[in-house]
């Protein structure tokens, strides 16, 4: 990796209070959205941290409506990744 791409790397983080349980459908949407980014992304809930590209791991978090999920991304598209995944979680029904 070149120095210039290192310098554009960013770390972004945001938290979302879930409007609905993080069940199969939103977990699937999250996995599909996460695949579009190059950044390393983690979804954190109640002390557990998983890669959102894995739908089963996301469902395994057992995150329910009203609880908080934190999205953390590191890489050149970290900002867009966090924003997009947060939007997916906000739209969960």
């Amino acid at each position: 990796m070149s120095l210039s791409s290192d310098s554009t790397a960013a770390i972004c983080e945001t938290s979302v209070v879930l409007p609905a349980n993080l069940h199969a459908r939103p977990a699937g949407k999250l996995a599909q959205a996460a695949a579009r980014f190059n950044s390393t992304i983690l979804i954190e809930h109640a002390g557990k941290s998983v890669n959102p590209a894995g739908i089963l791991a996301v469902m395994g978090l057992g995150a329910t409506a009203g609880t908080t999920v934190t999205i953390r991304a590191e890489g050149e598209d970290a900002g867009a990744a966090v924003e997009t995944l947060a939007a997916v979680l906000h739209a969960a029904e």
Partner: peptide, 22 residues
């Protein structure tokens, strides 16, 4: 679970070995 992980991974345009691994 295997079919679901494979289908979601395939839907992202992943290649054969990535889908099988998922």
């Amino acid at each position: 679970e295997g079919a679901l992980a494979a289908a979601i991974t395939a839907s992202t345009g992943a290649d054969l070995s990535t889908v099988a691994t998922a």
